[in-house]
Design a protein around this nucleic acid. Structure first.
Lengths: 181, 181
DNA sequence: GGAGACATGTAAACTGTTACATGATTAG
DNA sequence: CTAATCATGTAACAGTTTACATGTCTCC
């Protein structure tokens, strides 16, 4: 159900069309929950059916026309309830760790291919970190404790992203050293 | 496809029945890739169909009877190829971070429910960390660099688990402080 | 022979991805 | 008018979860 809640959050931040949402899921919201445009259109239809959002009436309601949605009171209520709901953390799925474990069994075959792959991932994580740090500099210039709650929460989420990327960078670096040993 | 590769790895480590695998997916392998028994039986059947594994012939081949599988050469070859294959990291899905972001929009409603939930997650991560540290003490007593490659790789994977749990513990602690402010 | 654990499996629903279809608008 | 882009959608499939079905073995 998380995707519906992600969409509700995004729409509360700003009423949007399906394509707008798709773009925001390529950054921002999407850093912690991805979705394709097909999935988003699908969930928008379901959310509208259940009365949690509605399409803002337009002059020209035709196919191929931009359709903007906004959250209804029932949608806000559902999101508020979800925030405090008890939900176990999903058990993680990390294909890269799985692969190292497979490498421990079948060997790295001189290690070249695996090392190249780890380096590629390292570079991707470095880029993501740079992007997050750019956002932090731009959006959260004040010290964290000084801000009001909404900004404190948003900053916390961004910090989680930054620290996760830092973890991967440190870990991949060490893995590469160990692989070359 | 990762589940099939996880199963191949597990079976190379030790030929097993479906239920054995299910148990190992509740710990060990399962720390980085989870699966239910239904899914495991399904993938075992597919792997057998594609000739990557085979059921070890038994005396009494009946339903409700234990059926043990082992990896065939084609299966080992597939796993070896996968280890060095290029594959983008999956974009992450973190419902908890999504929830904090939703909280930034709809408010925390005095914060009680959300704080309790964060505390619950904190406790779960502390337990997982303790479990990992127990395993480290038991399986990797020597310094990391001294060991041979297979053990170095396995230790690296475990260290990733430990450091990820440490990240969550630190972050959740900070989030709780911020929420109570 | 009955209870409970062991073991394998089927079916349906849900979630997510990939490929494709189609109309509207805008720039040249 | 044409090409490119914007925008919404359908269809098929793959992956995952949940609920249920069924047979076997062991202990009492």
């Amino acid at each position: 159900m998380s995707l519906q809640h992600a969409i509700l959050t995004a729409l509360l931040e700003k009423p949007s069309s399906g394509l707008d949402l798709t773009r925001r899921f390529d950054r921002s919201i999407g850093y912690f929950w991805t979705a394709t445009h097909q999935q988003i259109y699908h969930e928008l239809a379901r959310l509208e059916d259940s009365g949690l959002i509605r399409a803002i009436p337009a002059e020209r309601p035709a196919q191929g026309q931009r359709k903007e949605y906004e959250v209804l009171p029932a949608g806000r209520a559902e999101l508020t309830a979800w925030v405090a709901r008890s939900e176990d953390p999903r058990r993680s799925r990390e294909p890269l760790l799985l692969r190292l474990r497979a490498a421990a069994v079948v060997g790295t075959g001189s290690g070249g291919g695996l090392a190249a792959e780890l380096e590629r991932h390292l570079e991707l994580h470095r880029r993501q970190l740079a992007e997050y740090e750019e956002i932090e500099k731009r959006d959260f210039p004040e010290p964290r404790d000084a801000a009001a709650e909404p900004d404190r929460l948003r900053h916390l989420v961004l910090r989680a992203g930054i620290e996760l990327e830092n973890f991967w960078i440190t870990w991949l670096d060490r893995a590469l050293t160990s692989l070359r040993q």
